[in-house]
Design a protein around this nucleic acid. Structure first.
Lengths: 200, 200
DNA sequence: GTGTGATTTGACCAACTGGTCAAAGCTACG
DNA sequence: CGTAGCTTTGACCAGTTGGTCAAATCACAC
């Protein structure tokens, strides 16, 4: 079912998704209006609705794209690699995502804050399965005496929390730092944290 | 300007604030309706509006109360105490707040996600000043050779991120853990993290 | 019980919301 | 140049939103 699309359709669709990401990530699903998205995308509302059947459809498409990108870095955690190096690489990938795709991070945060009604299945299914799998990998490393014994689930939560914080709470972080770019310092600090934690 | 209030006024005001906290913390300012708050509080909308002049006023009052409670645990960080113990105590206080006041945490998260338009002054003023002050305390501990050298700002960010995550992303955390209470494990894990990081 | 002020609400309003539709404008190809 | 079909929009609709108001109800001191 390959849908053929004209250049204009391609351009408008991505303009709408881009605009939707902008607005949904700030105001959440209920706080966002179609007029806001249409204005941001530079289209009229009826025109926008000729590309997506509803507000819900735009949001759903954004969330689906996001969830894939969200799990990718964790998929890449390789049980045959150097344990501490693998974990530090995962931290780095997630921090880079917070720097380069902060709106996606905020879209996810907004959805979770609202109780995750639209992604509950994914959380309880794909996400949980993947985390269970990787937690097992980390447990293996601990059993093999390659990293210090820590709860693998809370280890993963802490990586999420520490990296996403720089995207989700960007305004607060920059206020405290007087506007300076937090990411170089964050990279160094997080390396230090996880090295100290996992080193034997 | 001490306002005298009848018992009914006292009860209704707090019912409204309670309901507002419930709804605002889930849907954010724009995503929340007065009808939702009124229903949750068990009042009619006109009655609700006889206690607060507008939706904005309820939100503002909640945010002001919140910001005070937010800064309190950091205020308590004592430069004359045992450094690592002081920091671990701060972590514990913040984690307890995430467990006992998750809605407040989410209200704050929602406001920051939206760019913090209603609390920008506080972030750049009171909050920044307090963090600057406590960062100086931590720097002193590092200079005195009492804790390992770490960036004090990122240390504070990491405490916020790691503790608030358990309130803000509660749905995700519980999905991954299959519904189990995350807080006992979190307490232990966070102690381990900050001990490993700060110990010389 | 009665009156007074506190409390509550039904009915209402203008602005906004998500969404529809028919008509208009535009573009590429013969 | 014409026209078929892609693209766009003005006008519209019903439901919701934040907020108002006068009238009704209630609680309680006398």
């Amino acid at each position: 079912m390959a849908i053929t699309r004209t250049r204009i359709q391609e351009k408008n669709r991505s303009a709408i998704l881009e605009a939707g990401l902008d607005v949904f990530s700030q105001y959440g699903f209920r706080g966002t209006t179609l007029d806001q998205i249409a204005d941001t995308a530079g289209l009229s509302k009826p025109n926008l609705l000729s590309y997506f059947p509803s507000k819900e459809a735009i949001h759903t498409e954004l969330l689906e794209t996001l969830l894939q990108a969200w799990l990718d870095p964790l998929h890449a955690l390789d049980d045959t690699g150097d344990p501490i190096g693998e974990i530090l690489d995962y931290v780095k990938r997630k921090l880079d995502m917070s720097r380069d795709y902060p709106r996606e991070s905020r879209l996810f945060a907004n959805e979770i804050l609202q109780g995750g009604p639209r992604i509950a299945d994914n959380l309880n299914g794909e996400l949980k399965a993947l985390v269970d799998e990787k937690a097992e990998v980390i447990r293996g490393w601990i059993a093999a005496g390659k990293v210090a014994p820590v709860d693998p689930y809370h280890l993963i939560f802490s990586i999420w929390a520490l990296t996403q914080h720089y995207a989700d709470f960007d305004v607060q972080v920059r206020a405290v730092l007087g506007g300076a770019d937090p990411f170089p310092g964050a990279q160094e600090y997080l390396t230090q944290v996880f090295t100290a934690l996992l080193r034997l």
